[in-house]
Design a protein around this nucleic acid. Sequence first.
DNA 1: TAAAGTTAGTTACATAAAGTAAGTAACTAA
DNA 2: TTAGTTACTTACTTTATGTAACTAACTTTA
Lengths: 111, 111
Amino acid sequence: MNNFELCPRFEKAMSILSQRWTTLILYQLMTGPQRFCTMTDKLGVSGKTLSERLKDLEQQGFIVRDVYPETPVRIEYSLTEKGLSLTPVMKAIEKWSQVWIEPESVSDIEN
Amino acid sequence: MNNFELCPRFEKAMSILSQRWTTLILYQLMTGPQRFCTMTDKLGVSGKTLSERLKDLEQQGFIVRDVYPETPVRIEYSLTEKGLSLTPVMKAIEKWSQVWIEPESVSDIEN
DNA sequence: TAAAGTTAGTTACATAAAGTAAGTAACTAA
DNA sequence: TTAGTTACTTACTTTATGTAACTAACTTTA
């Protein structure tokens, strides 16, 4: 059982941010609006999981989904104000990773 | 397949930090050295998972494990320099959560 | 001296989350 | 009319996590 000695807001924040792929999706969206396929390609996330995460993130107000009825249809996801508000967190992680992640270890992600 | 258009260091950083419980464990350790039982109690993590995470974190150089042969034995985990270097990241998340997490929603974590 | 307590885990089994790959829907271009 | 494109969804498999009982090493209590 949880005694709640930890800051409950921090815990809640982490329950969102530590969901696998969530932070990577938001980080990717910081470079501008993105389409579904672009994101699966760039992130390496499965369509199933991306679909779930985008729904969650939209529902929680981090992103919006815009439909452009072109041919073929274009659907773009972009950050809301709430999504953008995570920029300082992303910057802090970016900065940390530049100091503490050695370039050699990075290839471990690939397979 | 992964095209690596995202910053590889950021991706690697997130593969560590977005592991469930990892950030919460490190955040907890920022208040000082902690024992195994204290952490399971305060965090609500299962002993099995905590055990795995502590091993990973020690192996990656974020924490150290110190044994005090008292009665009963006392084992304390504490942050290394690398662990402490995550303070700005933690502070950024803390600050974000204070603005964007509404107190009411926090009870959702409990069950 | 035997039974019970304490801490720090580990183990076996159950459930939940994520990945894989094929399929669907709606539309257009050849 | 066949094939192509985008944005998903579905069925099935693999991996991750939780639960609860168990172990090891030692000490205190009856």
